[in-house]
Design a protein around this nucleic acid. Sequence first.
DNA 1: AAAATCTTTGCTAACGTTTTCATAGAGAAA
DNA 2: TTTCTCTATGAAAACGTTAGCAAAGATTTT
Lengths: 384, 384
Amino acid sequence: MSQTTIQDVARAAGVSVSTVSRSFTRPDLVSATTRAKVLAVAKKLDFRLSRSAAALKSGRSFRIALLLPSPITNWFNVTVLSGLNSALQPAGYDISIFTIATWEQRRSFFTSMPVRRNADAVILCSFNAVPDEITELRGVGVPVVGINTSLKAGLDADVSLDDIRSEELAVEHLIGLGHRRLAYFYTSHDTPFDYSADDRHIGFDNAILAARDKGLDVSSSTIACPYEEDPVNAALAKLLALSPQPTALVFQTDDLAMPVMLHLARYNKRVPQNYSVVGFDDSTYAADAGLTTMHQDPADLGRRAARLTLALMEEREGSGTGPEPTHGRGRASSLPEHGHTSLQGRGHATGAQETSGGTDGSGAFQSLVARLVLRESTAPVRAD
Amino acid sequence: MSQTTIQDVARAAGVSVSTVSRSFTRPDLVSATTRAKVLAVAKKLDFRLSRSAAALKSGRSFRIALLLPSPITNWFNVTVLSGLNSALQPAGYDISIFTIATWEQRRSFFTSMPVRRNADAVILCSFNAVPDEITELRGVGVPVVGINTSLKAGLDADVSLDDIRSEELAVEHLIGLGHRRLAYFYTSHDTPFDYSADDRHIGFDNAILAARDKGLDVSSSTIACPYEEDPVNAALAKLLALSPQPTALVFQTDDLAMPVMLHLARYNKRVPQNYSVVGFDDSTYAADAGLTTMHQDPADLGRRAARLTLALMEEREGSGTGPEPTHGRGRASSLPEHGHTSLQGRGHATGAQETSGGTDGSGAFQSLVARLVLRESTAPVRAD
DNA sequence: AAAATCTTTGCTAACGTTTTCATAGAGAAA
DNA sequence: TTTCTCTATGAAAACGTTAGCAAAGATTTT
């Protein structure tokens, strides 16, 4: 009934519990022969460290809280989660997912603060936290890391897409194709929790203004599509009501662009003959739908954020212990359950070039730019 | 630096630590006045129970392992996860996600068995475990619950979609529309980890045979689309090579059906004029794409599985303690962190009717049937 | 009024690790 | 050889809860 404990292993291997413990968590402190013996015995007894006990004694919880402003089922959210989990799970950490999509949930979360004492780090994903909330989160005494946050003040690290610059690139592409009447579609929310809408909008406007500065006669419309009440039909209705009609449509997300494109056929509008369309994200079906879009790699964001988080936790762990003011990497002391950890992996920026960053490549504040992917949904404006 | 402990609260409230502990986890054992006092003090001190300590002493880990045969980013997987988390997180449980997509990962998982001693339950989602592996999992001594499993022997509970019956309904619809030449498309994998392909295929064949038994002259083809090497193009190529051409296409998943539909236009094939198309899942863009499909609700599967899991854990907890052979629900003793638990909620089977089940509605083995959703991609066969 | 039962509380011993401190050898420096 | 520095190990004290047992009142039954 009761599971094998470290005691059993110690007894069977003829060593002390300390040695068994060290064989797993601090291999460098145990002689190779002893360790081999311990590991062999442990394997035979089918022993595994109890995360709970380790957590209690070491003061860590081996849980990392992930705060989301929107359902986990969103393409972006789940892809980030996937990246996070691929790096965090092998390092022995679980992810506690908190979806905070309503004011009620938000109030409940920040008053009850279930994270306090039960998470070793907090990761904000696209979460538009206000300064007070960040202060509150800092109060739990663990690293706070952001992914795609607008407000970075108070965070210990952050990796974000440069939405402004990325959306500028999208618009520049369309203007380069000769388009002069553009429309920007974005999903508006009752709750201002979700981040990214604002910056992409800014990027859109920036690019329009820049074109005008160059003397081009560019006009633009901005179309809000309320998330809570059929954004797709709102987009279609508002689009068709525009006069004169735009020739190029810029969407805040593929998730909005694709259904609109799919419905356009019913109104006898074709892409790219009637409209050139640019999305954002390069999400699941974008390639199949032939949608020109800005490619980003949320799994990479997740992996990067995970690495930063692991490094921060180590650092904090190391500094708290001894009176050593060394600023280098602390000693690794995570549970090497299965899989490898390798925090300082080569920063492979798949599909998005790094634009800025901290001092070095593994800076605590990283910014990436999306990459334009050309497909069939954009074409030069028709001569008429 | 150090957080408030149960001791501090006990001291400040003038009661024993036991009473504080009970105020949180066994409220029924504490007088209302005492509990109110304790809770007030706890709130003032900003105290929260340490999951780690509770876990160690109580022998639970407050973690539930989720085994997936495919990336969490899959529509089905993430929607199940969403349902699971919505029920499990408020009950104080975190979900440890294990993605097991290769033989290597599978071997690694089942040999190192990181779940042992570190999870209070194991949930298999679409995971095609073999009997030996189920035995292995049972060996960790916690409930093993399945979602969409083919092999239910050895599981403590399971909630699955009746893929056979559901796919039969899809085919019956097409035959009812007059179609007589049908093709079934499915995604084939190098690894046989993922479940559902087989049963849907059986359902397809069943319906074809049933139609023939009724004297209808129905013919069918079966088309494998290798996941690892561009399944969409494989589907298109093999479809166009068929002669005579089928009039109705049945896809194992929307994820396969939709890209194929999107590409069909390039070959001057229209839906439903040239082909009637039926998908399966009713996933994200199906409605926008006008795809007739079998609607299922994986979030509901997740919630159901979560409820069953919670009930099983309670039961096991209850029976282990005293020598009481009572088989009824044990007493609830989860951490009431934030949110409500209400395990025996009304079984709202959104979008899928329950067909069978255990003895009662909350039976440990539940089977649901998907619901046909009619959209523009199917039409009566053309008279020719 | 005594006895029996129920309710509420406190005391205390774990739960299974990690980590500090101490110690015994093994080499290295003297 | 003696002393010093490392390295490898063990002993033992926590970490912050939970839960079994006991006891003191409160309430009910006899």
